[in-house]
Design a protein around this nucleic acid. Structure first.
Lengths: 229, 229
DNA sequence: TACATTCATATTGTCAACAATATTTAAAAT
DNA sequence: ATTTTAAATATTGTTGACAATATGAATGTA
């Protein structure tokens, strides 16, 4: 595995520690969407003073997990359809570009690792074709492995720190819905094949299709959900 | 002009006000690159207490203008060649995608405005073919106008809040170097023509070429500069 | 009853002092 | 003279109190 891909973990300060914790609580729904966050309350419940808490909230704002309005307060974002669309479009643009770069930069050993990863996914799917929920994590692993090899630190950080946090939140929200995972696996193989052929042009196109396809499925599900309610 | 494209200006708090001010001071070089920032000193020089100043520094960190290490301190980033490359690659990916979206979403009136903008640039260039420095601002206007019409708030915010701040910093650093601006104008016309033909595919390709071309020129200049020193 | 205004309350923004950590300086040992 | 160690200094992290602003309740008026 490469170094220098992920920033060093700095959890030394209270502010940073609480930031991480609140982040997880928002993503996993412990703090529900749209909820107003009172500084005094939260500070008490995490047992720190308001100073570091405010700094944590600022960091949360910078990765779009909360909205802050001066003098008014902070509240957790609500993942509506428009926001998810924006996020998936961003992924399309950025992961498409990332795979194009990675396709040129990857050593063969990384490509081999990707094939092994997909084989593992394939086995997991065959083993348990009922409970496909677990598999979604595998999807993230695949995407993460690829963009982390693109050699552009800004791109990596944005995908990792911002987009994928919101994405995890989406997944959590839609985790009860069962997806068909075989088509995704097929897409993944096609992408790795393009990388293996050192065809960045094609790799980008396939990645874009893969992500925009995922969005179309998700969009339909969300609309159905809305109609039901 | 559309509303809802730029977030409302919130300069109500000290923290926000100082953030804006330090941001400008960094971008324009008043605070030089690589400089260590002492909280006590800066707080005194902006005549506020350390609380709001720290919040401002966190915001600056979130747009990559400073590096913070816990317990150690804050320093202004240094724009080396690798970082500029990353930024230009990001622009290539994101502005390419933005123009693709904008190409579909733009009403004809916006396209007319773009043509008028380019005519104005053309006139400015002819008028003062010596001092092309001023013209670079025009380039930013053009790019900004396009991506602000892409209808994806995440994309707009990232370009506007992060990439373009660093880009302005680059421009300031290389402002003494004269550029030939006619080729850029030619590219701009080609892009607007593609938009006018409602050809998002082509518009994206042209935008990518335009930006990667600009990077190649800049890269050469930076290398020459290094050799000299 | 509906609406506007005023006052009380709660929440956010700011400050200055204190604690914890890093950096520098000076002394001691090899 | 160079490296190690230890103390002193400076800087960052944290806290609780105070000021400014917004929110909500109560009162009065149409």
């Amino acid at each position: 595995m490469n170094v220098n891909v992920l920033q060093p973990i700095k959890q030394d300060t209270l502010s940073e520690h609480v930031f991480q914790q609140i982040k997880e609580d928002i993503i996993t729904g412990v703090i529900p969407q749209g909820q107003k966050i009172g500084e005094t309350d939260l500070a008490k419940s995490y047992d720190i003073s308001r100073g570091p808490l405010r700094e944590a909230l600022h960091k949360l704002e910078s990765i779009q997990l909360v909205d802050r309005r001066p003098h008014s307060g902070t509240r957790v974002i609500t993942l509506d359809c428009a926001m998810m669309r924006d996020v998936y479009q961003m992924r399309e643009a950025m992961e498409g570009f990332a795979v194009r770069l990675a396709c040129v930069a990857m050593p063969q050993s990384d490509i081999d690792n990707l094939y092994r990863l997909l084989e593992k996914h394939e086995a997991t799917i065959k083993q348990s074709d009922g409970k496909q929920y677990f598999q979604k994590e595998g999807d993230l692993d695949f995407h993460y492995y690829i963009f982390s090899k693109c050699q552009n630190q800004w791109l990596i950080n944005y995908l990792n720190d911002k987009l994928y946090q919101v994405l995890r939140m989406c997944r959590h929200r839609t985790s009860q819905i069962p997806f068909r995972v075989e088509p995704a696996l097929h897409d993944h193989y096609a992408i790795v094949n393009a990388i293996n052929d050192r065809d960045p042009e094609l790799a980008e196109i396939l990645m874009r299709r893969h992500i925009s396809g995922a969005w179309k499925i998700l969009e339909n599900l969300l609309n159905q959900e809305e109609i039901k309610e």
